Amino acid sequence: MGSSDNEWRRGRGYHHGNLRQVLLDAAGKLIEQHGPLGFSLAEAARLAGVSPAAPYRHFRDRDALLSEVARTGFERFAAQLETAWDNGRPTPLQAIENLGRAYLNFARNEPAAYAVMFQTVGENGKELQDMPAADHAFNVLQKATAELCKALPAAERPPSRLVSLHIWALAHGVATLLSESRGERRKVPVSPEEVLESGMLIYLKGLGVLGEGPAGGAGPA
């Protein structure tokens, strides 16, 4: 490993009681460099400055470490989405735009966690553990879309779960382009936030959720 790895290890050396977090931090650095499946538990231990046997106090294998990176990532992700949604304030439309920006910010600021959060299988096809925190994150989005769809007559409202999946797919697509195609992204004359916002507005307008006013606000409930 390079000198930057050595500097990182010296600055975050192992102290009694924080081994688990030090290993998570080391995994994050390795994921950014090599991808979720591009390192071993022994390499995480080496970067953390501990013995090869030390990680087994907390993690049975590398996939268990990845699962914990994903779980804690989803917890932070869900909390940031909740804060951005803010119970639909100041308006449901503005709040869901804030939620979309929070989604992109998380992918930008925590690329290692984001990469693992949507990695459903580990080495040799082993399924990573279920993530209740992922359900929490999705429930924030479903709550937001249900509130937006109240603008439609009850008989015309699409299933909020389906709408949530559509918006999630749109946000994930933009976030993935943001993190994986940096060279291509520079050729696009708009920001990822503008791409996501315009895509969401087009989609919501197609559903009939948005009014026809100049501000594009939600129609009457």
Rank of each mutant, 00 (worst) to 15 (best):
A218H: 06
P192G: 10
E75C: 03
L204S: 03
V188R: 15
L210K: 05
S181K: 05
L128E: 00
G216R: 07
R108T: 02
A151I: 07
S3E: 07
Y14L: 13
D130H: 14
Q33Y: 02
G122P: 00
A42C: 06
P132T: 01
I31M: 05
E127T: 04
R157F: 08
K143C: 12
A221G: 14
F118Q: 09
E32W: 01
H15G: 11
R9D: 02
S40P: 00
E194H: 13
F39R: 14
V69G: 05
E180S: 09
E97S: 09
A27I: 10
R10E: 01
H16R: 15
R186A: 15
T120P: 00
D130N: 13
N109D: 12
R12L: 09
C149D: 13
S3K: 11
A151E: 02
I31N: 04
E123V: 08
P55D: 03
T145V: 15
S179Y: 01
Y203F: 07
V209H: 01
A27N: 11
A169V: 03
A175V: 00
R185C: 12
K150R: 13
R101V: 12
A221N: 11
R161F: 05
A151V: 11
S67H: 06
S67F: 01
A42D: 09
M1Q: 01
L93P: 00
L162C: 08
Q21G: 05
S3Y: 07
A70T: 07
G88W: 00
P92I: 03
G206D: 04
H34A: 12
V22L: 14
D5K: 10
G217S: 13
V116H: 06
H58V: 02
D135M: 11
P52A: 13
N124S: 05
A42M: 08
Q94W: 05
R101C: 04
M1S: 04
F39D: 03
A78T: 03
E184L: 15
P92H: 04
Q119C: 10
R186M: 15
Y56R: 12
A112F: 01
T145Y: 04
L201M: 11
C149S: 14
L204P: 00
L66C: 05
W168K: 15
Q119V: 01
E212Q: 15
A154I: 12
S4Y: 05
A54R: 10
L170S: 07
L128G: 00
E212T: 15
A113M: 01
D63C: 03
E32M: 06
H172A: 13
A146L: 10
T145I: 11
L196Q: 08
R12E: 03
N109R: 14
E7D: 06
L104E: 00
N87T: 06
R157Y: 09
A102L: 02
S67D: 08
G2E: 02
G38R: 12
F106Y: 10
G49D: 06
G219Y: 07
L165A: 15
Q21R: 08
P90Y: 10
S51T: 07
S160W: 04
G38C: 06
L201S: 10
E184H: 12
G38N: 08
Q80Y: 04
V50E: 07
S164C: 12
A107M: 03
S191L: 09
K150P: 00
D25F: 09
T176A: 10
S198H: 13
A26L: 11
L128C: 01
I202E: 06
A151D: 03
R185M: 15
K187A: 15
E127G: 02
A134W: 02
G208Y: 04
